[in-house]
Design a protein around this nucleic acid. Structure first.
Lengths: 257, 257
DNA sequence: CTGGAACCTGTGATTTTTCTGAGAAACACA
DNA sequence: TGTGTTTCTCAGAAAAATCACAGGTTCCAG
């Protein structure tokens, strides 16, 4: 039970109860993320999703609270809404950087926000997503930021592999058995979600909640539709990797199994 | 685990988490740059961008602070605004040179600054850029200065190569498959940014933030436009190297892939 | 065997995103 | 100052992606 499994002792990653691989900090402690947004529904949504990644989350509802929390929480990354009640996002950023010069920031901006205030945001390696966002998108961007900032180990694995299926999160390239496959943005996100949870059944509700943005009000059968698209591109003519669990959901697993 | 990997110990460059090649000092420590400008927004923007290059940054808001910081920080390069509140840029330069005779300086000057004041600035191997600048420009010039000063190793790699596409940062020459290609300044910067991040999807926001100057307030579709110009010159009739990732951005990669 | 539930997928309307032509403005240089 | 180049805006064309709808198929319980 407590055998000296060298992989377990020295590795910088661990496998979550859900079977996914987590990012960890070099000292083995969980990654810390500070979430700042004035809408409680947003901070709660994000906190839940990010905790599920195995990260340690704190949240704040305004700039003042954010700066305070940042000081003693010392997060490895910050999710920062640009529109806060008490101060401008850029002001928060500036002060944040005084205490934590290297912390990467993921900005949240309204879709229709004037473009000019986004200028320069990604200059320092930071990134942003527009509201309404999908959780997979936020998680993926955060993982990218954290990986690149060097706050976590497991640096170079921007590639997900399941069987002979390969997905590169940097180049957005997907291939199966060496053949390149072109996916649309939504197809890509769906496949990424499946591949981050191999051999696990994901319900349509879960998929909808993670891959589509939180304000999606459409028909529930988009998931079926997109699964069908993916199959056409990925399983076409080959041993299928995407499987239906009737009444439960879908799962992906290596073909030979 | 701690084996003597000769490559690791003696190499003068490393590959950043981003996959790009960094400049390092001969002893393997990060390059140090001092940024001097009285506008906080400028020092912050530059600090962010230069930190992202893997460099170690200090900043100062006036000449006095600059000289003080320079003394114990001993930077490998200095970015110096010519217009400081307490003293003239040339005065700062003179005193700076007393402590650090060989440090290369990148001057920042207002666009409308009288030409004759700039005259001679670059005589000693220094360089300058006019405000408003683009980050790619500043980074490129700094890399050039540092490379040429001998403060960092990896001297001769002023040439970026992706597939049969070649870009020389010193001569500003570009060729594909041996054919010389003439690019305008903006086209050149865009291509350089793409080539410094091969096989990685770069969003339009990232491109805008790095390649256009920080005060650019125009339409986001200049990026599309310039991508289209580049394609006409680089991919014309050939196997395309510049690819669109709809909804994500653009990337460059070798044709055969 | 049969009916209903769950799932799959073709079609096409709608929306979003990207591309590009034309020309105005800014600039560089002789 | 004039000319050619470069940069950029605007607007419409083209392409691609997203999604609703609906008819068809598969599965399973009874």
């Amino acid at each position: 039970m407590f055998s000296e499994d060298p992989d377990k002792v020295s590795s910088m990653t661990t496998t979550s109860p859900q079977g996914r691989t987590e990012l960890l900090r070099p000292d083995g402690s969980p990654v810390r993320v500070l979430v700042v947004d004035d809408e409680l529904s947003i901070t709660e949504l994000l906190s839940m999703a990010l905790r599920y990644e195995g990260w340690q989350i704190r949240s704040a509802g305004d700039g003042t609270g954010a700066l305070q929390t940042a000081r003693d929480f010392r997060p490895d990354a910050v999710v920062l809404d640009m529109m806060l009640p008490d101060m401008d996002g850029l002001t928060v950023l500036g002060r944040l950087r005084r205490d934590l010069p290297d912390v990467p920031v993921l900005f949240l901006t309204a879709k229709d926000a004037v473009e000019d205030r986004i200028a320069g945001l990604t200059a320092g390696g930071d990134d942003y997503v527009t509201k309404p966002f999908s959780l997979e998108e936020v998680v993926a961007r955060l993982r990218g930021l954290i990986r690149r900032s060097g706050a976590a180990d497991r640096r170079s694995d921007s590639v997900l592999v399941v069987g002979d299926l390969m997905l590169d999160e940097d180049s957005h390239e997907v291939s199966r058995g060496g053949d390149n496959i072109h996916l649309t943005a939504t197809e890509f996100e769906l496949l990424r979600f499946l591949m981050r949870n191999p051999r696990r059944v994901l319900s349509k509700a879960q998929i909808l909640d993670r891959v589509w943005s939180y304000d999606f009000g459409g028909q529930a059968n988009v998931v079926e539709l997109y699964i069908s698209y993916l199959r056409r591109k990925i399983d076409a003519g080959r041993e299928p990797m995407i499987h239906t669990r009737r009444g439960a959901g879908y799962l992906i697993k290596p073909a030979a199994s």
